[in-house]
Design a protein around this nucleic acid. Structure first.
Ligand SMILES: [Zn+2]
Ligand SMILES: [Zn+2]
Length: 445
DNA sequence: AGAAGTGCCCGTCTACTCCC
DNA sequence: GGGGAGTAGACGGGCACTTC
């Protein structure tokens, strides 16, 4: 039996321009699917995946309509399911459909693959034959206009679960001291993510950005003097952390998880923050300043209303560098506090994340930017722990610095159960290390 | 026999409308 | 105009049932 237990992770091979998805199945086994018609990379642990086709491949075959707007939803005259003709129960994922097709679409997209059609993907779909061929049923769903981005992501499901858990009565299950003061944000229930097609574009964009990047990480991997992470001393490690943080921030502004917005304008940053709040619980309590609550005053009734996600990311980056970005539309009180923060002159280029954390703990917790500063500080610790964990992985030290950073970044996002593209200079060894990380588990550090 | 897939039902959440 | 109550729509999860 093969059970998908892990989030798909996307990798990008710079040399061959192929995007690759890896997913862990059960205790071992890797299902590797190469986009854009490239060959399937068969790792030795891969189970026999013959007879199955990935949802991604089908969706790429049948690109969705313009996802930036919401066209008139498909509906039949008699209120029948657009996919199979059964009695429709309402609009599901953008299409008037029955409960069966709704559940089928949700399960299949979540699962990530279906049994391949044996009749050339041309089976008829009605309420009697719909069970015979899942691939054609999925294609029918897609053709009817069903949108996978209407599903909650795993990250959102997880944060939703955590939110409900935090709201549940705690009489017989008292909460731990670490999460007692951490209200978790509810996820946006109807988030509209960028679809698969858009994600591919973003992967390409990210790749191009990396190609033309003149960042230290890019130049560091050229030549025989390239340095492995294990050889870095503490001061260099701080710079590396800074590099990773910057890399993360730059990437965050392009990341579909961070940039997706729903039709009502709320953003998924809240979901991400909720995830991060949970992930920080796995960190040694000694690493955290107990006086700092990551989500003080951020209750579900007072969500962060970011002006735009780009400004959000920009602010995070500015605060990380100790330079508060004071916009024209910021209140006077916030400006003052931001300037106070700026006047401390602290910078992650000079001090480790813990110092930033302590510094931010001295600030009053009543401005959005200060909360963001604490978010960044906590994130820095998570990144540091990620680095510690990844350094223990076999063959990690053989990677060039650029790939080490990419691997760390991938591991960090994977820890947050996010699906991210990863650009690797040395593809084979990088993928090997990433496999080891995923095998070792997300919560090993 | 048992794993995998299916579809019905229900709880939950959000947006919307109505009323005070 | 603002806030609370009620309602509809759409989501995921649970579970009994069917299929393989
Ligand atoms: Zn149907
Ligand atoms: Zn078929």
């Amino acid at each position: 039996m093969i059970t998908c237990t892990a989030e798909l992770s996307t990798f990008y091979d710079r040399r061959t321009s192929h995007s690759v998805q890896l997913a862990a199945f059960g205790q071992g086994g890797w299902f590797v699917q190469v986009w854009r018609g490239a060959a399937v990379l068969a790792c030795e642990e891969i189970g026999n995946m013959a007879g199955q086709v990935s949802v991604t491949a089908i969706f790429e075959d049948m690109p969705a309509q313009d996802t930036t707007s919401f066209p008139e939803p498909a509906v039949t005259e008699g209120g029948d399911c657009v996919v199979c003709g059964d009695k429709g129960s309402g609009f599901h994922y953008g299409v008037f459909s029955c409960e069966g097709c709704k559940g089928f679409f949700r399960r299949t997209v979540t699962k990530g693959y279906v049994k391949a059609c044996k009749s050339g993907s041309k089976c008829n779909m009605d309420m009697y034959t719909r069970r015979k061929c899942p691939e054609c049923r999925l294609r029918s769903c897609r053709a009817a206009g069903m949108r996978s981005d209407c599903l909650l992501t795993k990250a959102q499901c997880r944060s939703k679960f955590l939110y409900r858990k935090s709201q549940a009565p705690t009489s017989d299950h008292p909460v731990s001291p670490t999460n007692q003061e951490v209200p978790i944000q509810p996820p946006t229930n109807q988030s509209r993510a960028a679809d698969v097609h858009q994600q591919q574009n973003q992967i390409s964009n990210f790749s191009n950005q990396s190609e033309i990047s003149d960042s230290p990480s890019s130049s560091a991997q050229t030549g025989p003097e390239e340095m492995s992470l294990s050889q870095l001393n503490d001061s260099n490690a701080t710079n590396l952390l800074d590099e990773i943080m910057s890399s993360f921030m730059d990437f965050g502004s392009e990341n579909p998880v961070l940039t997706r917005t729903d039709s009502t304008g709320s953003d998924d940053m809240l979901s991400f923050l909720a995830l991060l709040a949970n992930d920080t619980q796995s960190i040694d309590e000694n690493d955290l300043d107990p006086s700092i609550g990551l989500f003080d005053e951020l209750t579900p009734t007072t969500p962060v209303q970011s002006d735009s996600i780009y400004e959000h990311a920009e602010n995070l980056l500015s605060l990380q560098n100790g330079k508060a970005n004071v916009g024209a539309n910021v209140s006077a009180s916030t400006e003052g506090q931001a300037s106070e923060k700026s006047s401390t002159g602290s910078s992650t280029s000079d001090v480790p994340a813990e110092s930033v954390l302590k510094a931010t703990g001295t600030m009053q917790a009543n401005s959005k930017r200060e909360k963001q500063a604490r978010f960044v500080a906590h994130m820095g610790i998570v990144v540091e722990k990620t680095v510690e964990f990844v350094k223990t992985i076999h063959r990690f030290q053989d990677l060039c610095l650029e790939d080490q950073i990419e691997v760390i970044k991938a591991s960090f996002f994977d820890c947050c159960m996010m699906k991210v593209p990863v650009v690797l200079a040395n593809f084979d060894s990088g993928v090997h290390v990433l496999q080891r990380i995923l095998q070792a588990g997300k919560s090993s550090f």
